[in-house]
């Protein structure tokens, strides 16, 4: 399933990039992160409990940075393993500077398998859209925080 969109930030490109390039800050914007381990600059791991309303879905997600061209492009692979679910995601984003503002074009190819994937066909896409929405709002907040901190 491919989801994509465009997001504008009221912050300079470097600020946005710094947030996106920092695994620790990334951890702040992901839903339900319980622990976060940085293996090296290209690999990190998060243990998450994605809140699903009816009870959380626990998952261990391994991230690998695939490519980057600072401060404008990066792509990332995430592989999640959990009881009842298996997630594979490749995501990429491109930042365009627009004076003091930044425009981000992003896309993600999300694949979900296992019982959750099979049980939840009818709700999967709405849930993913919803989680993406949460991540983008959290990112916005994080960027604003970074902007405030740097000014």
């Amino acid at each position: 399933m491919i989801v994509n969109g465009t997001k504008e930030f009221d912050a300079p490109r470097e600020t946005v990039w710094a947030v996106l390039d920092d695994p620790a800050q990334m951890a702040q914007i992901m839903p339900g992160v319980e622990s976060f381990t940085i293996t090296d600059e290209r690999h990190w791991q998060a243990k998450v409990k994605i809140p699903l309303g009816l009870g959380g879905l626990k998952m261990t997600i391994d991230f690998e940075k695939l490519a980057e061209t600072p401060p404008e492009f990066a792509s990332l692979h995430a592989k999640g393993n959990g009881v009842g679910a298996l997630m594979n995601m490749t995501t990429e984003f491109r930042l365009r500077a627009d004076g003091e503002r930044t425009t981000m074009d992003w896309s993600a190819d999300v694949k979900i398998a296992g019982p959750v994937g099979s049980m939840g066909q009818r709700v999967l896409q709405p849930i993913i859209n919803q989680q993406v929405g949460n991540v983008l709002s959290a990112l916005e907040a994080q960027v604003q925080k970074a902007k405030a901190a740097s000014s």
């Binding site: 699903l52 309303g53 009816l54 009870g55 009881v83 009842g84 679910a85 019982p115 959750v116 049980m119």
Partner: peptide, 15 residues
């Protein structure tokens, strides 16, 4: 009628 089903699939597990 939904919660028990979701728990059967272990798609979510309330404590």
């Amino acid at each position: 009628q939904t919660l028990v089903n979701v728990m059967k699939a272990r798609a979510a597990s309330p404590d």
